[in-house]
Amino acid sequence: MDEAAWILVAGWVAAILRSATPLLFVTLGETLSQRVGIINLGIEGEMLAGACFGFAVAATTGSPTLGLLAGGGAGLLLSSVHAGLCVGLGANQFGSGLAVWMIGLGITSFFGRSFVGAQVDAAGSIGGSWLEGMPVLAQLLDNLSWTAPLAFLTIAVAAAMLYRTRPGLAWRTVGEAPDAARAAGLSVARIQVSGVLVAGFLAGLGGAVLSVDYTQTWAQEMTKGRGLVAVGLVIVARWNPWLVPPVVLAFGAAEAAVLRLQAGGLEVSSHLLAILPYVVALAVVIAAYIFSHRDGGMPQGLKGVFAARS
């Protein structure tokens, strides 16, 4: 391939990375939560809260960094409801997640109205003049902010912590065998609460990356089920943080392709094109179930959640 073609590819990769970055954070969060045995459907509401309050803070202070932090904080705050209900009071995890989703949806619609149409600055680009003479790399990095590398760094740190450290071992034990963990003197409740709160922070951060850095707008219900898609992608990634990037990027490629097709003036309803990401998510979840001996990789503690239904 000649350089022009490579520049085209670099532009493509940048587009995919940008659209996938919010979902990288959210999917990592849900993975960690499920690794300690707590499934969290409320991640949709937490992502929405992060998108709304992150955008509000970024618009008010003019600082995207503060906005992203505030988004993470909002997600963490909302996830404490889930932690309190599931871990503290032993409530059903599906029910609690949906309650948290409803609260997030309602609160962001309620308080977000005054920020519709506000302006924010995106997080800074990681490109710059130092890339002169390297047009391919420039095309890639000029179009990326520091949130994308931060997402990969966070995933690497989380994976290393989960598989290589003592606290990580404790988290995995709690997810796989809560009774054994308790017998070994681990505080199951404390570790599960930590997992849910970390997931909440990451979901809120992902939501803020979406509104502050990617779309640079806030709109009611703007996450449009991305949090729920993340819950599905966790299954596809076999509850393994290392597998989160390939799975999410494949999904992001589908989403970016939709945008490209739309921009290319394809004569198909934009609403039909918008269905594609959900169809892809559904298809990969089904494929994951069919081709991986059902629950392969699922933390043992979670199986009780799926089996004990009421």
Partner: peptide, 26 residues
């Protein structure tokens, strides 16, 4: 008062209904 207050209240109702049995147990 924005009508979305009804969504917040539904969410709070759900959370309350989930919390109360656990609180009684505790």
């Amino acid at each position: 008062i924005p009508a979305s207050s009804a969504i917040v209240l539904q969410g709070l109702l759900f959370a309350t209904a989930l919390a109360v049995p656990g609180l009684i147990r505790l």
